[in-house]
Structure formats: C-alpha cells, structure tokens
Design a protein around this nucleic acid. Structure first.
Lengths: 248, 248
DNA sequence: CGAGAACTTGACCATCGTCAATTTACGTGG
DNA sequence: CCACGTAAATTGACGATGGTCAAGTTCTCG
C-alpha cells in the first residue's frame, strides 16, 4: 500500500494525464494505487544512463531534468528538458535499451514506478495506455521542432523559439507567472540544448537583452515582448498539442 | 471485403509489424482484414499537409517519402525518410492536427487505412497497439539521433551517420544489397535532411568519394568502407532498435 | 536532339566556434 | 557580516565551417 508521500507523487501523474486525456474515476484510482519510491536527487546526477536496461520509469515531481547524450570527446547534446509531471523515460516500457541518458539539472524530487506495475496498468486500462502513447507522440513532435530549429533557424531564432516553448510548457502545468518563468539552468546547458557553444549563447542572450525581448535575472526568465519573441522565431504552438483530449 | 491488391498492401504491414513484435494468427488475420485503398503517387506530391486533420493513415508500399516542414521564406527541413512498410503518419491516430507535412520523394505506391478501422484494431488487439506504439518510439529515437547529428556533428560526420542509418534501415526490410542500397533522392533533399545547403552537400560528397568511403552512381549508394564510415560518424545502431521483440 | 533538372565548382562572406582572460555571482566557513 | 573559492557569465581577438551567389557542366528523358 502506498505511503502518503507516494500518493502525493502519483497525484502529479494523475494531473499530467488529465492534461492529456479525460480519466474515469476508476482509471484515476488505478494510477493512485501504483507503487512509487520517491527520492531527492542532487543537481547533475544521472537517473538512467545510456545503455541501461531499466526496469522502472521515473516521474519528475520537482526540479528540472534533461535527456542527453555524450558523443566524441565529451560533446554533449541535450535532447529535451523535463519538469514536474513528466515521465521522461516512458519509452523504456517498450524499448528496452536506453539510447541516451537522463539526468537532473537542478536538485530534483523524482518517483520511481516499476515497469511491471505500469504494464499491468495499461493492460487493464486502454484509456491510460492511449494517454501515455499520446504523451510520447507529443515528445516526438517536440524533437521534430528542435530539429527544425537546429537545421533551419539561426542561433537567435532558435533560442527565441526555445524560450517560447519552455514558457508555454511551464504555463500549462501552472509553473509560470505572467510572461515570466523559472529557467534554472546554466548557459552551458542552454548551449548543449541548442547545439551551440556557451560563448555564443552568451552573445545571443546579450543581443536579446539589448533588444528588450527578454531579461534573465538569476534563474528567472522574463519575456518582455512575447509578440516579438514569437514572431522572430516564427513560433507556432501547434506542435505542443496542449489542447485537452478525451480518452479513446 | 478487401480486394487482392489491398491484401497485398496489408501483407506489407504484417511484415513490418512482425519485424517489431511477434503476432498471433488472429492478429495477423485482423490486420489483413483492414480496408485499404491503394494509390500510385508522382514524385514530390504531398500526402498529408501541415495543419490537416487526417482521418486515415498512410502505409508506404513502394518508393520513398519524407516528413518535412517549411519555415520562413521557403526553407525546408526534412524530418525523416520513409520506405516500404512505414506508416509515417501513425501519430495522427492520437494527435489530430498535423504539425508537419508528408510527401513522396519518388514515384510511390501508398495505401490508405481509415483511422476508425485502425482504432478498432488496436482496441481489440493490445499486442498490435503495443507494436504500433513501439514503432512510434523508434521513430522518436531516430529524431533524437538526428538532433545529435545536427547539434554536435560536423557536416561530414553527420552525412556519414545518415548513410549508415539508411543502409541498415533498408537492409532490415530486405531492400539493400551487400554494402549498397538505393538512394533515390537529390542532393537538395539530402541537404534539407541534414540542415545544410545543396552546395555544401555536394562538397562533402566529393570529399567522401575522394576518401573512398562511398560512391554514388545514379541513385545507388555504394558503401566502399563500412568500418571507416561508421567510425568517422561514431555510428552505433542501438538507437534503431532493430532486434525483434515479442508482443507484450 | 533539346530542355530542364540535377550536379559541380569557384570566389567570397557570415555565423558561429576556439582560446583565453576577466568579471560576476554564489555558497561556505570564519 | 565578510573573506574566500569555485562555478558561471562575459568579453575580445581570431579562425573555421558552412552559406551565398553565380556560372558552368552533366544527366535524364521525352
């Protein structure tokens, strides 16, 4: 039987899935009955490593994480950012060998849920399976948009686009204020996500500040001019597929 | 009742899913009973367009297709290549608005299967649902690898990596010979996939030929030195997740 | 054989990377 | 509260990868 704190953890998963699909009372209860082990991790700590064959999934409750891969002599590419409610290694349910790593970017609270229980859950609740599937599809849509940014946008446009994306994602889960949101990552992290160097990220940030598009105080991003920011990056939020969707 | 040619089309889907999961006789039959409308398309023709809300999925039977998106003043980013057996818009089952387009690159034969029938199929056969889900997850894994190529590899390494990937994907479905495979696309297509210009693609190809890594005659890619090609691009096929996998 | 598409090449240029030196911010212990 | 040490941010000078523009050349196919 889950402890109080575990139930709290699973409430986060219920909330996430309800942003994707409509859950029945029974489905909601089935999720809350999942076993989960909660842990607090230090910043920069690996959760799952490239090549692992995990037997559990990780639900982020607090803080930020990222998927990344190291190639060559230590070059890192960040593949995605993850925040509270995300299950960044959901794919490990169906793809047994990790082809990248997952790590915290900040101090983070995460809950681990065994694959066996998740498999049982989706076997008995096709609506939940569909919601999970949809979640991984939105994930893929974000990868596609990052590909476009890397391939066909300038550093300036690409970064503006990322800021728009992060702001909307945080807003969707209630973690953003009015045109401002936490951005608890370093310029090196930003560079590794955008496929740039930290030096160039710094230069682009300077430019964006000079043009009064954003300010970045401490670890808070303030969007001073949303319209301009989304316009220079041709930001179209369609790919985030944020609209709520009934279970199949 | 499906016509003879439609049954032939669906055999392709059975074969594809059997490369992902083990199907029961019943599941195999259920797939073969799907209705499918087959059409032959000209090269460069759109199958589904950015913004559409399709009510059917597209199974490629012959030829090549790609997913792409146009941004700015006509800049195109190709997001993925697709060959016989692929269902490149499977995500439209769960994500209703297309956030990119799908088009043929060559003359192609494709079959269309209504969403309703696919939904019924997966509702009644969870094993097939799992196989489809897994397929979209491998798709996402390939996006991630392309992201790494764009962000952290040189043009030369990136292109070498793509050639390794395409060769293995074609080999997996029996469409490649011994270190040679069809590559029926233009240098402009290659450039739009790699995030480069056609001019630079041409220069990199010249370099690869000079170093006797590949030759590209007509629309056939010959890999003259697999070991070197995979080594310079640090190619690790794990992310293609080609090993066969039992249905859940 | 002719026309258009695809490919190839050269000259020049811009974005972004590299290297290295400061400066600033921040957490810890005194 | 201040001093100190380390990580993060910032800046400048210079260089390289890849883009732009433009002019051929070769292929393909009717």
């Amino acid at each position: 039987m889950p402890s109080t704190s575990d139930t709290h953890a699973l409430t986060m998963l219920v909330r996430k899935l309800e942003s994707i699909a409509i859950l029945s009372d029974e489905e909601r209860q089935a999720i809350l009955n999942l076993p989960a082990k909660t842990r607090v991790l230090q910043p920069g700590q690996d959760i799952v490593h490239d090549g692992d064959k995990p037997s559990q999934c990780c639900l982020i409750l607090k803080g930020w994480a990222c998927r990344y891969k190291i190639i060559g002599e230590g070059k890192r590419q960040i593949l995605s950012f993850h925040i509270a409610g995300d299950v960044p290694d959901l794919q490990s349910l169906h793809i047994h060998t990790m082809d990248h790593s997952l790590a915290t970017l900040t101090e983070a609270t995460v809950a681990f849920i065994p694959h066996d229980n998740l498999r049982e859950l989706i076997a008995q609740h096709p609506g939940i399976a569909a919601a999970f599937w949809r979640d991984t599809l939105v994930d893929a849509a974000i990868f596609r948009e990052w590909l476009i940014g890397m391939g066909r946008r300038s550093a300036y446009e690409h970064m503006a686009h990322l800021f728009c994306e992060l702001y909307l994602k945080l807003q969707a889960v209630g973690l953003a204020g009015s045109y401002c949101c936490p951005l608890p990552i370093t310029q090196v992290d930003l560079a590794d996500a955008l496929g740039l160097t930290n030096v160039h990220v710094n230069r682009v940030l300077k430019q964006m500040r000079e043009q009064s598009l954003i300010t970045l105080r401490g670890h808070t991003l303030v969007i001073e001019a949303w319209d301009e920011l989304s316009q220079v990056s041709e930001f179209d939020p369609t790919y985030l597929h944020l609209e709520k969707r009934a279970a199949a």
